[in-house]
């Protein structure tokens, strides 16, 4: 996206709306921007389209607490005003978390966001230490072979999971926090890792809590 004002929107996708596909979520934000009457830029050519770009896709059924979308505006609208107008144009389950402007020259969200933080809730009564041990044991094997569309794919766990997963007990629920590296080669799905560690049919829900940039300044949010 060249000249113009690049608006970065951070939003959540929760509750029943976690079942939206990436495409459906995208269309929903496009329509929200129209309802909010943002001065969005339109592409040139035969079929003019809104200049809009999304972060990495969230699988159907996975909730997201901080997802991102960039929209190119043709004129500057103060952040407070955008926040009010956009906030009033979406349903709470697809709510606006915050928004702000970034440099139009900034690389795309899809290429910048390489770390995803997840919370995986599991059920079944194993004590915290046992769950932790299962995770440590699996990490210790160094790799995980995953079947995807009939093909075996081997993940190097130290690459795929750049930080050790953590286990927390919150109000009687067992939650595994983990950080996954995303790249061109695909990323390890958190529920696949957790299932391999603690056994089948234990994952209750998966939430992507954060998407992060990893560069020489360390890990940080894109907004």
């Amino acid at each position: 996206m060249p000249e113009g004002f690049k608006l970065r929107i951070c939003f959540r996708k929760t509750g029943p709306l976690r079942f939206l596909s990436h495409l459906e979520t995208g269309r929903a934000w496009e329509r929200a921007a129209r309802r909010a009457r943002l001065p969005y830029a339109v592409s040139q050519g035969f079929t003019p389209r809104m200049r809009i770009a999304f972060g990495p896709a969230l699988p159907v059924g996975t909730a997201g607490e901080r997802e991102y979308v960039d929209i190119l505006l043709t004129r500057f609208v103060p952040v407070a005003e955008v926040t009010e107008r956009l906030g009033a144009s979406v349903v709470p389950e697809l709510g606006l978390v915050k928004c702000g402007y970034v440099s139009p020259a900034e690389a795309s969200l899809a290429s910048r966001l390489t770390i995803a933080a997840y919370e995986v809730e599991i059920e079944g009564g194993s004590p915290q230490q046992e769950t932790e041990r299962s995770l440590v044991t699996l990490m210790g094997t160094g790799s995980l072979s995953v079947e995807h569309k009939g093909k075996q794919k081997v993940f190097d766990l130290s690459q795929a999971l750049p930080k050790e997963p953590e286990v927390r007990f919150v109000e009687g629920r067992t939650i595994i926090r983990m950080w996954v590296r995303m790249g061109d080669q695909g990323s390890l799905r958190p529920e696949v890792f957790v299932t391999a560690a603690v056994g089948r049919d234990r994952v209750v829900s998966v939430t992507r809590t954060d998407l992060l940039i990893d560069d020489d300044q360390g890990w940080r949010r894109p907004l």
Partner: peptide, 23 residues
């Protein structure tokens, strides 16, 4: 019926057909 419906949604195609909450 949502708690029961929700449990079925990860098993079916195009779950967005069943979730309401549209604009």
């Amino acid at each position: 019926l949502w708690p029961q419906v929700e449990r079925l949604l990860s098993r079916v195609e195009r779950p967005s057909r069943y979730i309401d909450h549209e604009w």
